[in-house]
Design a protein around this nucleic acid. Structure first.
Lengths: 193, 193
DNA sequence: TGACATCTGGAACGCCCCTTCCACATAATG
DNA sequence: CATTATGTGGAAGGGGCGTTCCAGATGTCA
């Protein structure tokens, strides 16, 4: 196409995609250890190729996690756009399902600095904030807990569901139920129990 | 004392204690990396001595975590013995405070097989089960969520508080409040939000 | 098709960390 | 105090893993 010497070769682009897909697949398997070697093996590439395509393992993880996170964040934005009564519940159900599916993510990225992932997580926080704020405005969410606190609380709860993947199968549903009931405006003595 | 050749030397016993204390201290510092070298350094011992005293790093961690867990479990048993109205709340507050204090534990023991720790965690589950069962019997805890599910839910929630140690300071209190309100028997349409 | 920049595989390298080993030190005993 | 089993420090061993390197392969374009 372009004769300029800076152009990327087609196979390099393709291999980058293969590595990304392999990493995404492994992120859905909590047992698999996420080494460069394993990713390369699954992608049918050499280890050097995988690393070079991204400039390092961290950058590869960042790209893979970001791609996994993108649809959930988009879905959240969609729900937050028209925050009807069930929007928050729907999003929490889908978010905890996603977390459970891709549990390995949080284990693997712990302690790493992944810019794209961090940006999407911030955006996810924004979605939760919008949903909670809408619920507050409609009188469906208690206001005696700071909005920011509630955002973190809900986010961590979704994570907690994923963490206990060996737990009962209805844990996710129970968590959402308890969380939403607990987030409703208290009637009478709220913190008595 | 005893002339039998199997007796342990006094300095060996003392050094074992030093290593244990050092490990426990490091478990309270989330930033510190928990290597044998660091533990030995903090204990004023050689790396070999630390490992030999326990037979391996895992066994050392097991012993250290078990010692940290013991008081909380004991406290839980005490509260569960006379489960009055505030027992569950009190225990959750103390448990989440402990988790926050010793957050590094769950990161460090992930994927390891620690017998003593596992036994204490099981016992902690038993304490939560007792407290929740007492609450159910008294009509203070909803019964439309399986007891076992609720146990895991509460346990994971306590962990979630610890995980977000960068979060708002009132996160722990908010979590306990929301959790307990959400666990109360639903009045009217419970899962409507 | 020829010429060249780019890419690839996988070996080699360096780093980290747990474990083992051993010459030396120290507690225990009579 | 002499003797001996036990313990100690820290260097060496060994495995895992990310990264780098390079000779050979391959895509690209005239």
């Amino acid at each position: 196409m372009s004769s300029e010497p800076g152009a990327r070769r087609a196979d390099a682009v393709r291999n980058r995609g293969l590595a990304l897909d392999a990493a995404k697949q492994l992120l859905a398997q909590p047992e698999a250890q996420l080494t460069v070697e394993k990713i390369a093996q699954r992608a049918g590439l050499g280890a050097g190729t995988v690393v070079r395509a991204f400039g390092g393992k961290d950058a590869l993880l960042d790209a893979a996690v970001a791609e996994l996170l993108t649809p959930i964040v988009a879905r959240g934005r969609e729900l937050a756009a028209t925050p009807d009564e069930a929007a928050l519940r729907t999003f929490l159900v889908e978010l905890s399902a996603f977390q459970r599916e891709h549990y390995a993510i949080s284990e693997q990225i712990a302690g790493l600095s992944l810019p794209a992932t961090a940006a999407l997580e911030a955006e996810l926080g924004g979605v939760l904030r919008d949903l909670l704020a809408a619920g507050r405005a409609a009188g469906r969410i208690r206001t005696d807990i700071a909005l920011e606190t509630a955002v973190v609380l809900v986010g961590e709860a979704a994570h907690a569901v994923a963490r206990a993947r060996k737990g009962p199968g209805d844990l996710g549903a129970a968590f959402v139920t308890v969380l939403l009931d607990g987030l409703r405006p208290p009637s009478g003595a709220s913190t008595a129990a």
